[in-house]
Design a protein around this nucleic acid. Structure first.
Lengths: 236, 236
DNA sequence: CAGGTCGTCTGGTCTAGACCAAGGAGGCAA
DNA sequence: TTGCCTCCTTGGTCTAGACCAGACGACCTG
């Protein structure tokens, strides 16, 4: 694994070794201390190089668990009707959804404003996280209208919400409002995605309307920054 | 400026001091070495804290020039007809555009694929950078169809391209295709934006069609990650 | 067999320096 | 006035350690 070349720094060496498959065999990199030995460097220097590669989306870490090689980005088209699992399957990826909790709770003020309702209004709050090819990439907080979906907790919320909306309520998406912001992941989203507090992420806020223009739900999506590329086809 | 509290770390202290205006008076923070003195810490520790705050979008750096406090994010609606300056003005911000170069050049293969033309096709390549309230936030590379805009180099390219399209060619935007990807800024975009190589950024690729569906140009936009929030209103 | 304890693994934070390279201002010369 | 050169300042990279805290598996106990 010793591919050090005097001309360029540790980071370039690491990149080459990663690209050549010399660094990660199963997707997981050796521990930092092990890499320090391998490359005869210090942890500070090594971590700085790893951090740069993380920004580039080459590698990522799970909080206090280790470093891993990143797979290709998922192409995410938020305007597309089809659900997460179908979208992943179309790209030859395996998607998994895991329900964290589903209960009635007041929406935060920012959400209420977007959903045009009084502060403190109660919604069904559904929290889920999603994997692509086994990797945790997305934490979502859904706020569903209790009026539109009175008994939605009865259904299997590990499934696609879109599917449940359509099958059980005859509701399909109409127009939508999006907001895409690069942020630092903190608190619950960071914990659920198993990333360090303050890791780079992408927040996608989404307000969905049904065919009649009614606001039916709001999603707060927290993505690992290196997991997606957003594509939008806009006709006008 | 000594607001150190034993209970929590340097980073929290810095955040408090920044929020209270104790850290930056004119937008610029003291030099790293000065802050090391002020907070009785080491550069490694200080830089780690600053890097975290940078991810959060609280501060940013200009390569080898220093650290600065960030202004509010600009809301960017890529579907909106209006140009950059109007958009900024609507939000009470001052926008500036600076032409870097404008010449004929073959488009890179990735762009040719998106523009549905053979590899190596020549376009007008216009490079510009833009400031909001004086801060460099965007580097754009435009590839304009030479067939559609035969003599566009005659015009003042510090102005809005949209304006020139409309006034001189009677061309207005029709549908568009977007791609939004978090990336690391490197090479020319990084240099022009005066950020360190490998800084976190947002790349927005955009293919524009005119009202008749012709592909008229392609923009490669490189944004500083903390400068914008993308909003999209999608009716269907 | 379930639940808790504990050691050991991991990354996360920190000290205390060093040298390198680009930015920028000021002075000097053509 | 213009352009170059030098010097100081700035962030960028690096060495060599230390201790902290969460993750996790093994083991022990009830």
């Amino acid at each position: 694994m010793e591919t050090d070349r005097a001309e360029d720094g540790l980071e370039q060496t690491l990149r080459r070794d990663l690209a050549a498959g010399r660094l990660a065999t199963t997707g997981r990199l050796p521990s930092e201390r092990r890499m320090v030995e391998i490359y005869s460097t210090t942890r500070i220097t090594l971590r700085e190089a790893l951090l740069h590669m993380e920004i580039d989306g080459l590698i990522f870490r799970e909080n206090r668990r280790g470093w891993y090689a990143t797979g290709p980005r998922m192409v995410y088209n938020p305007l597309q009707r089809s659900n997460f699992h179908v979208m992943a399957a179309d790209q030859g990826r395996r998607a998994e959804t895991e329900l964290i909790e589903a209960l009635s709770a007041p929406a935060p003020a920012t959400v209420c404003r977007l959903m045009e309702c009084p502060d403190g209004t109660e919604f069904w709050r559904v929290r889920r996280r999603r994997r692509i090819d086994g990797r945790l990439v997305l934490f979502v907080e859904h706020y569903l209208s209790k009026a539109v979906f009175p008994d939605i907790l009865e259904f299997d919320l590990n499934r696609s919400l879109t599917g449940i909306y359509l099958e059980h309520y005859g509701i399909d998406y109409g127009s939508a409002y999006f907001e895409i912001t690069p942020i630092a992941l903190r608190g619950l989203p960071a914990a659920e995605l198993r990333c360090a507090d303050g890791a780079y992420g992408l927040k996608i806020t989404r307000i969905n309307h049904d065919q009649r223009g009614r606001i039916i739900d709001c999603d707060l999506e927290y993505w690992r920054h290196d997991a997606i590329s957003v594509r939008i086809e806009a006709t006008d």
